[in-house]
Nucleic acid binder design. Structure first.
Length: 406
DNA sequence: GAGTTTGAAACT
DNA sequence: CAGTTTCAAACTC
């Protein structure tokens, strides 16, 4: 597989901005270690970046630099995973279900070594802060400092992780895509101390599968896009010795659900892991207050996407933070609005009454508080509130029609 | 550590 | 798409 880190030289890749102005004589607010060799690296924090333009203000106080991604992005259109030069699409992606990683914080497969199957990487943003190949890769949630050699073609050995941080494993899943050729669905496993090793740090909780051969999504290793390693599983086929079968299983999962290996948790602000569950949970008996619940386990609130019964995993009034002793589910809150609406309507009053407004506002406020306590970014908080508002409105409209038909 | 409960995934 | 079965993690004792 043609998948080495290539084309990182700005002369070859015009999308990687070269900042020759990042000189040792940096402005005072830029922290440069004493004696640091030129060129030095600096970190572009997520909040410095305009998500719409993908531009950021360089700490050097000079002209803005264009953000670029490292070259190991997936091309779902391609018959194989391959490295893509150039910038990543902005807020929306034209690549089918593959969103712009910057906005989703979802991991993107990094393709570095052929023939290895099991590593994933989080998307990163690259800013070439020097003219000769020194780069800083920035992930919205966790800056990762990589040093790339300046050779026109970078082998994976050229990438060394200087420092990184770690997130809980639940939020890291592979981004396999169904690419037409099963044999090419190959996440990569660079050796230790590479960007791949960074990925290897994630999700290493051993599984205990006995019947699935670790080739179904029941297996957390498999679901996270990892091969089993030091697990307590039996009859495991989620390993290099069973490549063919494993790839077939991956393809099968993707056939059932193209997003099977994508994170189910939408990211919070600046790549934080808190957010909301994309599909929502379906809990019936746990009240969404045990780790059986995927939302609770991910430390996020249930939302209107959930179809849980007796949910207690939400914030309901401003006097309490945390799950409240109540049997009212998230879904039921919408119904409460309907009840108020219908009652008011049948009372020959206007549909939009103070009571209805109050109920709707209460629902929206609950979402806003949840977003706030979940430290979501303003756009995400806004989205949550708007979704709730839309839900309330639809319920009101339904109630109006129902009332009219009665 | 064995048995039970739970809910997602897989299957029909 | 809904209902059922399978599965492995979470939980209880």
């Amino acid at each position: 597989m043609n998948s080495s880190l290539t084309n990182l030289d700005s002369r070859e890749n015009p999308h990687v901005y070269t900042e020759d102005h990042c000189s040792p004589g940096a402005p005072p607010h830029v922290s440069v270690p004493a004696g640091a060799p030129y060129p030095y690296q600096h970190t572009i924090q997520p909040e410095m970046v305009d998500p719409l333009t993908l531009r950021f203000h360089c700490p050097c106080q000079s002209a803005q630099c264009q953000l670029s991604y490292p070259d190991y992005l997936l091309d779902p259109q391609s018959s194989q995973y391959q490295l893509l030069p150039g910038p990543v699409p902005a807020a929306s992606s034209s690549h089918g279900s593959l969103p712009a990683p910057w906005f989703t914080n979802e991991p993107v497969l990094c393709s570095m070594m052929p023939g290895d199957i099991h590593n994933i990487c989080v998307p990163q943003v690259v800013c070439n802060v020097s003219g000769d190949g020194q780069m800083v890769l920035v992930n919205p949630s966790e800056p990762v400092y990589l040093t790339l050699s300046s050779a026109p073609t970078h082998r994976e050995e050229d990438v060394s992780v200087v420092r990184t941080t770690r997130q809980p494993p639940h939020y890291h899943q592979a981004a396999y895509t169904l690419s037409g050729q099963t044999s090419n669905m190959q996440p990569q496993a660079p050796p230790a101390q590479t960007a791949g090793a960074l990925c290897e740090l994630r999700s290493r909780k051993p599984c205990h599968c006995t019947r699935s051969q670790c080739l179904k999504l029941y297996c957390e290793c498999f679901a996270n896009g990892l091969m089993c390693s030091n697990c307590d599983c039996s009859n495991c086929h989620n390993n290099a010795e069973h490549d063919t079968k494993r790839l077939k299983a991956i393809k099968s999962c993707l056939g059932r659900n193209p997003d099977a290996f994508r994170s189910k948790i939408a990211a919070g602000p600046s790549g934080e892991v808190k957010g909301w569950h994309n599909k929502g949970c379906h809990c019936k008996r746990s009240g969404c207050l045990k780790n059986y619940c995927e939302c609770y386990e991910a430390n996020i609130m249930c939302t209107s996407s959930c179809k849980c019964v007796g949910c207690r995993n939400y914030y309901f009034d401003d006097s309490e933070m945390g799950p409240k002793e109540s049997s009212v589910s998230v879904e039921d809150r919408g119904l409460m609005v309907v009840c108020v609406c219908v009652c008011v309507f049948r009372g020959s009053l206007s549909v939009i009454t103070p009571a209805v407004v109050e109920a709707v506002c209460g629902c929206m406020l609950a979402q806003a508080e949840g977003a706030e306590s979940g430290a979501l970014s303003p756009p995400q908080a806004e989205r949550m509130v708007l979704v709730e508002f839309g839900h309330c409105l639809s319920q009101i409209v339904k109630a109006m029609f129902k009332n009219n038909s009665d």
